[in-house]
Design a protein around this nucleic acid. Structure first.
Lengths: 149, 149
DNA sequence: ATTAATCGTAACTTTGACTATTACGATTCA
DNA sequence: TGAATCGTAATAGTCAAAGTTACGATTAAT
């Protein structure tokens, strides 16, 4: 989804759910369901009717991967976690505390890392790469969108 | 599973897959499948036949939550990750790099945290709690096992 | 030896969460 | 008015994890 937002910023226009669905190899309803999290936080807005669609309401500099992650997060980021099979067992409770503590630390590290990446950084890195690899071209445009098949 | 290992150490005996399954509200085959990871690393050993079962081959001081985690790990600990929908898209690749970097940092934090918890620490904390809460009892035994229903 | 208890593991079934699809209403532009 | 688009509920499909069955190998007790 971060990928999509960067493309949206580059193309300067509205992107329909249909278009985004093709980018992500999925379908428009899934896109609407997912992007609703971003809409609810005010990062994107939708317009109905012909020529409607989604547009960014913030600049890429004002969005981090953490913002995107939080907006889309529905369940735990971890596939492991404490058990509650025997809430009365003191051994289980102590083990759970230890595990939860470790997961909390990992979660904090993840959020810190995601928070340091602005979406604009992603583009900037690509432009830097491009500049380094191709000195003959002075234009640092946005890379083309994925072809909608 | 960490919970189970602590109980095994306390009871000083072998635990059958059947017994462990009751502890975890599951069934013996799932237990054997899961505990195989610990067996392959030499943390537990099994004995067949009557009076057989599983026993720890290390002391709790010699096992950390990280050891247990690595032994049981089958897939990524994260529910999120990079996409490979469009490997040729430079924007997707850059976004993936950023995301992977953040996950790597979180993963490192998780392993560091898990590595600092020895299974014996879990018991020790329980004993400390018990001692603090009940001065009249000088015995610091292992808390009772979960009742097999 | 025979029997019963136990692990090892392959094969199959069930479950549950996630994804995809369908359907239809609301809105908006031409 | 009609077509394009979002919003969302309801349903269906998918897939990996968990559960189950089955059966062989091993071992202790008698």
């Amino acid at each position: 989804m971060a990928h999509v937002l960067v493309h949206m910023a580059c193309h300067e226009g509205v992107a329909t759910s249909e278009t985004i669905a093709r980018m992500l190899n999925t379908n428009p309803v899934v896109v609407r369901r997912t992007i609703a999290g971003l809409r609810d936080r005010g990062y994107v807005a939708s317009e109905k009717g012909p020529r409607g669609g989604w547009r960014l309401t913030r600049r890429l500099e004002e969005l981090t991967l953490l913002d995107v992650h939080r907006a889309l997060e529905t369940a735990s980021v971890f596939t492991i976690g404490p058990s509650d099979d025997h809430a009365a067992c003191p051994v289980e409770n102590l083990a759970n505390q230890a595990i939860t503590g470790a997961l909390d630390q990992a979660s904090a590290a993840l959020e810190a890392a995601l928070g340091q990446v602005r979406l604009s950084d992603i583009l900037a890195e690509g432009q830097a790469l491009r500049a380094a690899m191709d000195h003959s071209r002075s234009q640092h445009q946005c890379p083309n969108a994925v072809a909608a098949q």
